[in-house]
């Protein structure tokens, strides 16, 4: 993959920047400039909250080239709270914990590295929120 393509996608990958439709209000991710619901132009940028839930998932044991480093890993369809479905890896959790409907949040992680000397590609993955402990003074 080319350096320029990684560069073009950085807002989507680091911040989940998509678009919103001016005429019907539908949120789009990834951005595609035309509303999928009403076909009106949709060019207003919108940063998604990063919260959603697992819609479906599968575990990859035989990864495509470039993703061997992390295998096995689980890929999920995430239903974002604003509506769109996003495909992403899950992280910070064990395979046995994953279930459909589980609430998850976006984090930025290393997606892949283009060899020892190539660029490191960062982007979104999803995980369960960090559990909050009871605060106690030491």
């Amino acid at each position: 993959m080319q350096v320029s393509r990684h560069w073009r996608l950085k807002s989507e990958r680091y911040k989940l920047v998509g678009e919103t439709c001016d005429s019907c209000g539908v949120k789009l991710f990834p951005p595609r400039d035309v509303c999928l619901a009403c076909e009106a132009p949709a060019k207003e940028l919108y940063t998604f909250t990063g919260f959603g839930e697992i819609y479906s998932y599968t575990t990859i044991y035989d990864p495509p080239a470039g993703f061997e480093h992390n295998a096995p890993y689980t890929v999920a369809l995430i239903k974002l709270e604003e509506g769109p479905l996003v495909t992403a890896q899950l992280t910070d959790m064990d395979d046995e914990e994953v279930r459909i409907g589980m609430p998850v949040e976006m984090v930025t992680r290393k997606l892949r590295s283009e060899g020892e000397e190539g660029m490191i590609v960062y982007g979104y993955k999803f995980r369960p929120a960090v559990p909050v402990q009871e605060l106690s003074a030491a």
């Binding site: 680091y14 480093h69 992390n70 890896q89 992280t91 910070d92 984090v107 930025t108 992680r109 290393k110 997606l111 490191i120 960062y122 993955k125």
Partner: peptide, 13 residues
């Protein structure tokens, strides 16, 4: 750190 973590990802969080 996990396989997909480094100083960039940890600093971002």
């Amino acid at each position: 750190p996990g396989l997909d973590e480094d100083v960039v990802t940890m600093s971002i969080e």
